[in-house]
Amino acid sequence: MTSKAAELSVEALGEQLTGIRRHLHRHPELSNEEYETTQYITSQLTQAGIRILDYGLATGVIAEIGSGKPGPVIALRADIDALPVQEETGAEYASLFPGKMHACGHDFHTAALLGAAYLLKQQEEQLPGTVRLLFQPAEEKAQGAQRVIASGALQQVRAVIGLHNKPDLPVGTIGITGGPLMAAADGFAVEVKGSGSHAAVPEAAVDPIVAAAHIVTALQSVVSRNVSPLHSSVVSVTQLHSGNSWNVIPEKAVLEGTIRNFDEAVRVKVLERFEQVAAGVAVALGATAKVRWIEGPPPVINDEALAALGIEAAEALGYQAVKPVPSPAGEDFAFYQREVPGLFVFVGTNGSREWHHPAFNLDEQALPVAARFLADMAVRSIAYYAANGGAKS
């Protein structure tokens, strides 16, 4: 079957991808609920004559482009889920579903990967290897990448390439760097237990609120006195809950928040010191503190060789490659990088709002930029690994 998209010019492809992105934007689905999105992506790929692979995923799509010639397998990844956000863009293509919105641009990522697929389909017979397309669910819950890996969809893959829109970069700019790009994102809940009493008789209690307040203060030393100033780390307490009456000292207080790190060794040390500080301060005040970790993705650490290829690809396409400022946000693309070399880049979209804002939007002229970059990187990566070890055994 000949793809209609394969016959389009880059400009016409951009128009087509804008239509796809707007359809996805109107119909957002939350993590693990991307059933209609899965069907839509499958339909678009099938119409283009691109093979769908069955890896048993409830949501998400795995597909492949290649003539069957022996050679490296390179994966391209896009995330497809939306956020529980009420949209405030005022766009004519705004979400049709109250309380759901593509406020992180995953609709852009999905459309861009479809565009890359169309471009790669044009040269399928000439590819000295295979491109595997990973339309991944549940990135916002940091679950989807691990599910894709568990399905076996990363088998035989030599390298994986992904991207994220970046509102503070102009269209035509691609942020590419080797090494750390995005942070490990861990959550925590600390349960502080004391003993309750009437508020007028505090000496009969072990006040968990006082202990929790001291823990919050002491946690500020975890980074400042345990992490080198040459590294970066964030410990943020974002919630403190305790009690339900003005005249009762409660038995329990709960702290919640997040920790961000760009280095695995620093991550391990910060989490260890966090537990020691919380437990130690609680004990000193007669209470106990139990930490429950909500493990997020590890840091995104880009392969240096792939980063060099990415700069070559961007410049060959006429785009500007810049060294991006690392983001403290988390991204489950990092789980793929634990399995195979990977490159994650920022594509400039000239947006007025940051990710997850109700008024988040982006410049759709960046769609063909992202699509062409992904396609070119796939071709370059196949050639690179063919010259440096061939297919993965």
Results as ranks from 00 to 15, higher is better:
316 A>L: 09
278 A>H: 01
317 L>S: 05
324 P>V: 09
163 L>R: 03
115 G>K: 13
213 A>L: 05
21 R>L: 08
84 P>R: 04
259 I>R: 00
234 V>M: 04
2 T>C: 05
54 D>P: 04
298 P>R: 07
147 R>D: 13
382 I>M: 10
334 A>H: 03
116 A>V: 09
380 R>Q: 10
140 E>Q: 12
205 A>F: 03
123 Q>F: 07
132 R>K: 12
235 V>H: 04
193 K>D: 03
221 S>F: 03
136 Q>S: 11
300 V>R: 06
224 S>M: 06
169 L>S: 12
242 S>T: 00
143 Q>K: 12
226 N>M: 00
6 A>V: 05
35 Y>R: 14
344 F>D: 04
139 E>H: 12
119 L>N: 03
252 K>S: 01
76 L>W: 11
246 W>Q: 13
78 A>W: 12
299 P>K: 04
217 T>L: 15
314 A>N: 07
186 D>F: 01
99 G>N: 07
330 G>F: 04
211 A>K: 00
102 H>C: 10
335 F>Y: 15
176 I>A: 10
249 I>T: 01
311 I>Q: 15
87 E>R: 05
136 Q>V: 13
321 A>K: 08
267 R>G: 02
293 W>F: 02
75 A>D: 11
295 E>H: 14
80 I>R: 06
348 G>Q: 12
198 H>Y: 07
60 G>N: 06
52 I>M: 13
203 E>K: 08
288 T>A: 00
203 E>N: 10
208 P>V: 00
83 L>E: 05
374 L>W: 12
2 T>A: 13
85 V>P: 05
69 K>M: 10
328 P>V: 08
384 Y>V: 07
269 K>L: 14
210 V>Q: 03
257 G>A: 01
362 L>K: 04
95 S>Q: 06
323 K>E: 14
234 V>R: 00
253 A>R: 02
104 C>T: 12
198 H>S: 11
308 A>D: 13
346 F>L: 14
222 V>S: 00
367 L>H: 12
41 I>Q: 08
12 A>V: 04
109 H>E: 15
324 P>I: 06
149 I>M: 09
150 A>Y: 10
248 V>Y: 01
240 L>S: 02
347 V>L: 09
84 P>E: 04
179 G>V: 06
135 F>K: 09
289 A>K: 00
134 L>P: 07
261 N>W: 02
229 P>N: 07
300 V>G: 10
376 D>R: 15
214 H>C: 04
75 A>G: 13
328 P>T: 12
37 T>R: 07
24 L>S: 14
13 L>G: 08
245 S>Q: 14
284 A>E: 10
254 V>T: 10
43 S>Y: 12
157 V>T: 08
147 R>S: 13
98 P>R: 06
307 A>N: 03
237 V>N: 03
361 N>D: 15
184 A>K: 01
33 E>I: 00
200 A>D: 13
187 G>T: 01
234 V>H: 03
348 G>Y: 11
32 N>T: 13
357 H>Q: 14
235 V>A: 02
184 A>V: 01
313 A>S: 15
9 S>Y: 05
161 I>P: 07
318 G>S: 11
114 L>K: 11
251 E>F: 02
243 G>I: 02
277 V>G: 01
224 S>E: 09
354 E>A: 14
28 P>Q: 10
377 M>S: 12
299 P>H: 04
94 A>F: 02
116 A>I: 13
53 L>I: 07
323 K>D: 11
19 G>R: 15
295 E>N: 14
105 G>L: 15
286 G>I: 01
